[in-house]
């Protein structure tokens, strides 16, 4: 996959949230404020890139050569869980205001499908690259763009939800169902990007 292809697909045509359905829970649940969405998105980008930085070499250099590929799910999620806890500790010590602002969303990144998803997909897509460094570079780029796409969807949607506050919604649809229907429309608009390849 070309560099531009990777970027476009991760951010637009194959958006993690709106096309692949990974990372829905925070997407639907995070506050309606755009600022909170940006904060969450930034945190997710950071965890995605750093997790890929650790998990890709683990797979390529440790698991694959020893025919231990089946341990990838366990190894990857363990790395992510420990990494998120590390980030929590570091933020608490060094940047307490940011730590407080992120609140409960920070530990939730561990269970974000998109984070584990991007580490698994990186291995799927780039393990057969010509050289290790080429695959590693592409994997890191993919993780970065996946995070950007996630943040994009999150921020767009926060805007939509802010507007929805003023709409008159039938009782049964109030809350999550209306959010899902709105998400379907946003997703529909992203579907239009698939003509871009």
């Amino acid at each position: 996959m070309s560099i531009l292809g990777i970027m476009l697909s991760a951010i637009l045509t194959d958006n993690f949230v709106l096309s692949k359905f990974m990372g829905c829970c925070p997407f639907l649940g995070v506050s309606k404020k755009i600022s909170a969405s940006i904060g969450m998105g930034a945190a997710v980008i950071f965890v995605m890139v750093c997790s890929t930085a650790i998990t890709y070499p683990i797979y390529m250099l440790l698991l694959l050569p020893r025919s231990l590929a089946y341990l990838q799910t366990m190894a990857f999620i363990l790395v992510i869980a420990l990494f998120v806890q590390l980030v929590e500790i570091v933020l608490k010590k060094l940047l307490p205001p940011l730590y407080r602002a992120l609140g409960v969303y920070l530990p939730l990144i561990t269970t974000n499908c998109a984070v584990l998803g991007v580490t698994l997909l990186n291995v799927d897509h780039f393990a057969s690259s010509a050289t290790f460094m080429e695959g590693y570079g592409k994997a890191l780029l993919y993780a970065l763009c996946a995070g950007i796409g996630f943040t994009l969807a999150l921020v767009l949607f926060a805007g939509v939800r802010e507007r929805m506050e003023y709409a008159d919604i039938p009782k049964a649809f109030k809350g999550i169902p209306a959010t899902l229907v709105a998400a379907s429309i946003v997703s529909l608009s992203f579907l239009a990007f698939s003509g871009m390849s």
């Binding site: 639907l28 999550i176 959010t179």
Partner: peptide
């Protein structure tokens, strides 16, 4: 999914929590 959940809410006559998942 949105419609199905709305249907379930209608049948159960309940107001759903406004956020999903962990939060």
């Amino acid at each position: 999914l949105g419609c199905v959940i709305a249907l379930v809410n209608r049948i159960a006559h309940r107001e759903p929590p406004r956020t999903a998942g962990c939060t």
